[in-house]
């Protein structure tokens, strides 16, 4: 009896797990359609972890500004002076596509 209860609990856990993942995927589909509309309207805006331009512009959208304005490169660990680059789990390298000299 106890073992069958253990098995049932285990199966319920697996079902809950599958339900959580499936519902998560369904929600994403609706949000993705709205995100596509927004991006179409504004011509593509935002790539990084920042939600405004008050900190690092590159962390908001590296297409607007390729360099991190807060980076103190020569200082060891200088990149960590920018909170968007030091603490975020999302980061982009600098775009190297510059003007032709």
């Amino acid at each position: 009896m106890t073992r069958s209860r253990t098995l049932t609990t285990g199966m319920m856990l697996v079902v809950a797990l599958a339900a959580v993942l499936a519902l998560s995927a369904l929600n994403e589909r609706d949000a993705s359609a709205r995100a596509a509309e927004f991006q179409h309207l504004v011509g593509g805006l935002g790539m990084g972890p920042a939600t405004d331009l008050s900190g690092c512009e590159a962390a908001f959208d590296s297409r607007l500004c390729p360099h991190c304005a807060w980076e103190n490169g020569p200082v060891p660990g200088g990149r960590a002076f920018c909170p968007s680059h030091a603490l975020s789990v999302v980061d982009y390298p600098e775009s190297t596509n510059g003007p032709v000299r």
Binding site: S32, Q39, M47, R63
Partner: peptide, 11 residues
């Protein structure tokens, strides 16, 4: 994913 949408729908 959101950034990919931004790139896809952008210029």
């Amino acid at each position: 994913d959101a950034a990919a949408e931004s790139v896809r729908e952008g210029a």
